[in-house]
Amino acid sequence: MASTTSGDILPSGGRVFMTFPDIFFIPEFVFGGLVWILVASTRVDAPNPLGWVMFVSVFCFVGTTLWFFIFICGGNQSSVWPSLDVGFHFLAAVFYLSAGVDLAYITFIYGEALKVLSSDAALKIYRLDIAAVVMCYVAILLYFIHAIFSAIRWKRS
């Protein structure tokens, strides 16, 4: 895998699929999309903060999609793009971290309520929430690693 941390410009075109940390775009799509799908497939109660989780997952999915297409089309070749790359991925990591904490808390509360009210439908929603928490923390890790290595690339350019 080629690296762009040697001070050259950001990758464009097909090089996006072969450079580090830009190879993380695809797993960020997958795990961010899974968080979106899993949270959307559960029941959201009125006082439930899962709206923030949905906002974060949709915002980051759309943002990563736009960012990916900008990189593919080569629109990222000016000197401001490395700092924007760091900023976007750091913001996405912080957003996902806050959403992951909310999602884990709601899943914990739902699990405690499940001890009292046991039903097959509630157990299915609880399992979907657990899967969403796992996918959310994987997305946090991916965005954080991408932000760190983008910062290293930005510092060296």
Rank of each mutant, 00 (worst) to 15 (best):
M1S: 03
M1V: 07
S3D: 08
T5E: 07
T5H: 13
S6K: 13
G13R: 03
R15Q: 11
R15W: 12
F17I: 04
F20Q: 07
F24P: 00
F25N: 09
P27N: 05
E28C: 12
E28R: 05
E28K: 04
G32M: 07
L34S: 08
V35D: 01
I37W: 14
V44T: 13
P49A: 00
L50M: 15
G51E: 13
M54W: 01
M54Y: 00
M54H: 03
M54F: 01
V58R: 05
C60S: 14
V62H: 06
G63Q: 08
T64I: 13
T65E: 01
L66E: 10
F69M: 07
F69V: 05
F71M: 03
F71K: 01
C73R: 03
C73Y: 05
C73Q: 04
G74Q: 01
Q77H: 15
Q77N: 14
Q77W: 10
S79M: 09
V80N: 14
W81L: 10
W81D: 08
W81K: 01
P82I: 01
L84M: 15
L84Q: 08
D85S: 15
V86L: 07
F88R: 08
H89F: 08
H89A: 02
H89L: 04
F90L: 15
F90W: 12
L97V: 09
L97N: 06
A99E: 02
G100R: 10
G100W: 09
V101P: 01
V101F: 12
V101C: 02
L103T: 02
A104S: 09
Y105C: 07
F108S: 12
G111Q: 07
L114K: 08
K115W: 03
V116L: 11
V116T: 11
S118N: 11
S118P: 00
A121S: 13
A121E: 15
A122L: 14
L123R: 15
K124D: 07
I125H: 14
L128V: 00
D129N: 15
V133H: 09
V133G: 03
M135R: 00
C136Q: 15
A139M: 14
A139K: 06
I140K: 03
L141V: 11
L141G: 10
L141M: 13
F144M: 06
I145T: 13
I145Q: 10
I148T: 10
F149P: 03
S150P: 09
A151N: 13
I152M: 11
R156H: 10
S157H: 12
